[in-house]
Design a protein around this nucleic acid. Structure first.
Length: 195
DNA sequence: TAAGTGATACGC
DNA sequence: CGTATCACTTAC
């Protein structure tokens, strides 16, 4: 297992968002070790991007996006759902990738990963399924944190690009092609498994 | 189609 | 201080 580090995240946000597709997201809690394949992402890049929270500039909430790459940005939306983001770009440039969906969720049973029946499609659902909340905000993406990303997942055979969801307020920025996902019907979630 | 839920940023 | 808004989900 090769854990993705700062070098991976310290790049253009759209590139990182695309490259994250098919990677494994790991989550370790007292309840167990979970993993799932990242299948949908969105890029939020720079203060000019009116869809990005960092368009407001440096505030307590956006502070983490101005920090170094490869850190976790989690915020609460609609009083109910925690949204999971990874910071990108070098320190000083605010940007992040929103993780919107995961596929093939599994849990470690002591000998192997076995499928788990939980919905992980949707940014609010996946954080609930993997017990991800604001306690992880500003932490680095490492095994020590209990949340990290690693190679060894899937190689997407097809990637769809569309505008981002739920950012109609963002003027000209709402139509920018910054959402990326692996189409579910590509059957890519079928053949998979390794320790 | 609309309600639920609370942090955030901004105006006063 | 008050309050409009929100990178969503679920149940009517």
């Amino acid at each position: 297992m090769k854990v993705l580090d700062k070098t991976f995240f310290e790049r253009n946000t759209c590139e990182v968002a695309r490259d994250l597709l098919g990677k494994y997201l790991y989550r370790r809690t007292e309840k167990g070790l979970y993993r799932a394949v990242i299948s949908e992402t969105e890029a939020y890049h720079g203060e000019e991007d009116l869809a990005c929270h960092c368009a407001k500039g440096r505030t307590p909430r956006t502070e983490v996006m101005f920090g170094p790459a490869g850190h976790i940005y989690v915020y609460l939306i609609y009083g109910m759902y925690d949204m999971l983001n990874f910071t990108t770009m070098p320190e000083g440039f605010p940007a992040a990738v929103l993780v919107r969906a995961l596929g093939y969720p599994e849990v470690w049973d002591g000998a192997r990963f076995v499928p788990v029946k939980k919905r992980t499609d949707g940014p609010g659902r996946l954080t609930r399924a993997l017990a991800i909340d604001r306690g992880l905000n500003k932490r680095p993406l490492t095994p020590g944190t209990g949340l990290w990303v690693a190679d060894g997942g899937l190689r997407p055979e097809k990637i769809i690009t569309t505008p981002r969801i739920g950012v109609d307020y963002a003027g000209e920025w709402k139509d920018k092609p910054r959402r990326f996902y692996i189409p579910a019907e590509s059957g890519i979630f079928k053949s998979n498994s390794e320790i």
